[in-house]
Design a binder for these strands. Structure first.
Lengths: 114, 114
DNA sequence: CCGGATCCCAGACGATACTG
DNA sequence: CAGTATCGTCTGGGATCCGG
């Protein structure tokens, strides 16, 4: 753990791990990334997978993930509109971490029973 | 990625990875955990390591980490007061993840230059 | 089908002062 | 030394309506 001072989005961070958290913290981001790690999805597919989201929030989170280069937004010039979302190379690279987050969480909850 | 519906702190989560994020998201938590992964620390040591923190915030984050069972607060009955903080077994188990978060962040920032 | 624009609130976070 | 207590701010996220 290098504790390397860095600037990102005009904020100062003390460790690069904080940058990663900055990228994936957002109400629906891990879920979006997890679903996209399984398959390419259209907007309304994601909506069905995450019924708790509002359109606005889903859009917002997708835009941020896109801006950060973690996902790709593919627009087809057809009517009715068709938009697909998929992981970028960078996005793919954090899939192992998502799994670890998942495993730890499951493990943690198990221990709470005991 | 199981997408396993769980309850935690009276909130509903769709995947256990969200629980892990819930545990470590907080302005100073990853830093605290990272520092404690290197050595046991006293309160004012942590304060010196993280000069940006206020006492209130540091206390708050430490209390939450303790309540969640990730760190241990060891109070010595002496004057002046002496309190030590260290990782619990559960806390130790997320150290590998902290490193991954760190590595990804560093990697990510590198790519931004290119 | 996909998303933008507005309004609003709780809760996270901060500043400052005080204490056993 | 290691905290409380109090108050103030700010922003992430929700609700709702509008538009191409």
């Amino acid at each position: 753990m290098p504790f390397q001072k860095v600037q990102f989005r005009d904020k100062a961070f003390t460790c690069t791990s904080e940058v990663t958290l900055e990228l994936i913290s957002g109400k629906w981001k891990v879920l979006i990334l997890s679903y996209l790690s399984k398959k390419v999805c259209r907007f309304n597919e994601l909506q069905k997978l995450m019924p708790e989201t509002t359109q606005k929030m889903l859009t917002l989170q997708l835009r941020e993930l896109e801006k950060d280069g973690l996902i790709i937004r593919k627009v087809y010039a057809v009517a009715p509109p068709k938009v697909e979302y998929l992981l970028s190379d960078l996005g793919e690279r954090l899939v192992p971490m998502l799994k670890q987050l998942c495993n730890f969480g499951a493990d943690y909850l198990d221990r709470l029973e005991a």
